[in-house]
Simulated scan of single mutants.
Amino acid sequence: MKLGDFMIIGAVLLIVGLIYGIKWLDTRNEEYIVGQLAAQITVNGKPYKTVNLAKEEQVIEIHTKYGHNTLKVFDYGIQMVFADCPNKISMQMGFKSRPHQQIICIPNRVLVEVINPSGSHDEDELDAVI
C-alpha cells in the first residue's frame, strides 16, 4: 500500500467518525421524563407491539415462525432475557432505558427500540427552511 491509500482510508474513517459522533451528541442530550418512555417492538419490519416502560415488571413473549424471544420490562427499561437464536447476542445487549437505544435479534428478526412518544422531535416536523 502506498501513502495515497492510507490517506484515503484515513479520510473515510474520519468522515464516518464525524457522522457517528454528531449523531451520538444529538441523541445523547434529548430530554425525556422517566416513566413516559415506551418500547416499540417490530418483527420482520412490521409493528408487533408497543409497551410503556414502567416500574412494574412485565414479561413479553414473542413467538413467531422465526423463533422465540422473551423481553422483560422493569425499572423503567427493557431487556431481552431469552432468545432461542444460536449466539444469543441480543441477550448481551443489556438493559435499555434511554430514547433511541435498541435491542436487535437478527436471526429472529426482532427489533426493540426505546422511543419517547412525548418527545419534541417528530418525523413530520419541519427540519429546515431554505
Rank of each mutant, 00 (worst) to 15 (best):
A39G: 05
V129E: 08
S118C: 03
S118I: 13
V51N: 12
V114I: 05
A11L: 06
F6M: 10
V81W: 05
N69V: 07
H121C: 04
K88V: 01
D127V: 09
V114P: 03
P47Q: 14
S97C: 08
D84A: 05
H63K: 15
V110R: 14
K65P: 05
L25S: 15
A54M: 08
I103D: 05
T27Y: 15
H63F: 13
G45F: 05
K23L: 14
V34F: 09
L18Q: 11
I22T: 12
P86Q: 00
T27C: 15
R28I: 08
A38D: 08
Q92N: 02
H63G: 14
K55I: 12
A11R: 06
L126I: 01
N44K: 03
S90D: 01
L53G: 07
E123V: 11
L25M: 09
K23T: 11
Q58G: 12
E113C: 11
Q79R: 05
L71R: 09
N87H: 00
D84F: 03
S90K: 04
R109N: 09
I15G: 09
P107E: 09
V34W: 10
D127H: 14
N52P: 06
C105M: 13
P86Y: 01
V59E: 14
I103Y: 03
G10Y: 06
Q92W: 01
G21T: 08
T70V: 04
L71A: 10
V34S: 14
Q36N: 14
I33W: 03
G10C: 12
E30G: 15
K72S: 04
Q36C: 14
I22F: 12
Q102R: 12
D84W: 10
D122G: 15
L25A: 15
A128I: 01
T64C: 11
P117I: 08
I8F: 04
F74I: 04
A54G: 11
Q92S: 01
A128S: 08
P86R: 02
T70Q: 00
S97F: 02
P99C: 04
Y20K: 13
K96E: 04
L13M: 10
K49S: 11
L37P: 09
S120G: 15
R109L: 06
K49T: 10
L53V: 09
N87S: 08
I89A: 02
G94M: 01
G21P: 09
Q102N: 09
C105Y: 03
G10H: 06
D84L: 04
E30W: 12
T70I: 00
M1I: 13
G67H: 02
C105R: 06
N44F: 05
L18T: 10
V16K: 02
A54I: 14
L111K: 15
G94F: 05
F6L: 10
I106T: 15
V51S: 09
K96I: 03
V43L: 08
